[in-house]
Computed example of a mutant assay.
Amino acid sequence: MEPRLTVITLGVEDVDRSLAFYRDGLGFPVLERFGEFICFELNGFALALYPREAHAEGANLDPETTGTGDVSLAHNVRTREEVDELVAEAEAAGATITEPPGETDWGGYSAYFTDPDGHCWEIAAGAELFEQFI
């Protein structure tokens, strides 16, 4: 299998609430909307939203046993100031800040927040390994 990522789909409870969070709150550009399937264009791949139950059922999973698990989506930036700005933007959009911006044990600067469905995001600066993706 070729190592690449094309789409991350998040199962959400309320598609319209999540659309408002990502499109209006964070400024993600909508690529397409097919009913309750919403796709945002990111840098080189897509982020999709789909009702949680329909998403689980499409994968032949019990919707009662699925969840966000121990996964985070990371957005790396160049400066600490950008981390602060993006975390403030996310909070204004309705995110819950789970770890405020601060120094990390790996020498960088990062923060964590969750979207309205509990999907975890990290905003980080100083991770040289990932600078090629910024």
Rank of each mutant, 00 (worst) to 15 (best):
F45D: 00
L129G: 01
L47P: 00
E57K: 15
H55R: 09
E99K: 13
E131S: 05
T65P: 05
D70I: 08
V12P: 02
E13A: 14
D117Y: 07
T114K: 11
D105G: 06
P29D: 03
E81T: 11
L61R: 11
T65H: 04
G11A: 05
A95S: 03
L49P: 00
F113Q: 04
Y22V: 09
N60H: 13
L47E: 00
L31G: 05
G58S: 10
E53T: 11
P51Y: 12
E91R: 15
S72Y: 15
L19V: 10
D62C: 10
T9L: 03
I38R: 03
C39W: 12
A125T: 00
G44L: 03
N60V: 10
A93L: 09
V30A: 09
N43Y: 12
A46M: 05
N76H: 04
G35M: 08
L26D: 01
F34K: 05
R17D: 10
D70F: 10
R33T: 05
A59Y: 13
V83L: 07
G102D: 10
A48C: 12
C120K: 13
A59Q: 14
W121Q: 01
R33D: 00
T66S: 06
F40Y: 10
L47Y: 01
E99L: 15
A59I: 04
A56Y: 15
A56M: 11
L10V: 03
R52T: 08
A125Y: 00
T65D: 13
F21K: 05
E2V: 08
G67H: 12
A93I: 09
G27M: 11
D117A: 08
E99Y: 12
E122M: 08
G58Y: 00
F130V: 03
F130R: 01
G58Q: 05
Y112K: 04
D84P: 10
G35E: 13
R33Y: 05
E122H: 08
E32N: 06
G107V: 08
A46K: 13
D62T: 10
F133K: 04
T104G: 12
G108K: 01
C39H: 02
E103L: 06
W121H: 02
T79E: 07
F37H: 07
I97M: 03
D115M: 03
E128T: 07
L5S: 02
I123R: 00
E13V: 00
E64I: 08
F45N: 00
